[in-house]
């Protein structure tokens, strides 16, 4: 019987850059991002896909990188919190989170930002109820959530205004 393969060569687009690596078959996307690529902005907490801290976008869809195999990202595009701001300019969601005080310790924030981006990219101008429903998978222990919802709502409002 053949030995199971323990390593795979993959090609992933991470924040717009194509990365080619050989990874262990058990490598999780969160470890690939944090350890192999030193993209430590994404955090990890529950390791069970229920806290949302490790959320990144894979082909624009939010996934929990703590339970997503790196090999499954082969040929796909991964977006992390590091890509949000450019040229020293914050993304509107980042601005809104700071303005609304939608974070304190900040550990859950990259996950909330990516989850919110996933929603507002797919559904610009989302209403409050949609926002609340969409963010239910993300835990924040500091804020009591209201400022987070307000921050995302304010960006959705901007989107609605711009669409007019």
């Amino acid at each position: 019987m053949a030995e199971p393969r323990t390593e795979f060569a993959i090609s992933v687009e991470v924040n717009g850059t194509t990365v080619e690596r050989t990874v262990e078959s058990r490598s999780l996307l969160i470890d690939f991002l944090r350890s192999d690529l030193a993209l430590t902005g994404t955090k990890v907490s529950c390791e069970l896909q229920v806290c949302g801290v490790c959320t990144v976008l894979v082909d624009g869809r939010p996934v929990s990188s703590c339970t997503y195999l790196t090999v499954d990202a082969d040929g796909r595009s991964v977006t992390t919190v590091e890509s949000l701001s450019s040229g020293g300019k914050l993304h509107p969601l980042q601005e809104a989170f700071v303005d609304c005080h939608a974070l304190q310790c900040g550990f859950c924030t990259p996950g909330f930002l990516m989850m919110a981006k996933g929603l507002l990219d797919a559904n610009p101008g989302a209403e409050r109820e949609e926002i609340v429903e969409h963010l239910e998978g993300n835990i924040c222990r500091c804020t009591g959530y209201r400022p987070i919802v307000e921050a995302v709502e304010s960006v959705a409002r901007q989107q609605r205004a711009e669409a007019k």
Binding site: L90, V98, G106
Partner: peptide
């Protein structure tokens, strides 16, 4: 505006 919050939203 809290500067630590700016660092935290960028992932840095």
């Amino acid at each position: 505006r809290r500067r630590d919050l700016v660092e935290k939203v960028t992932g840095s």
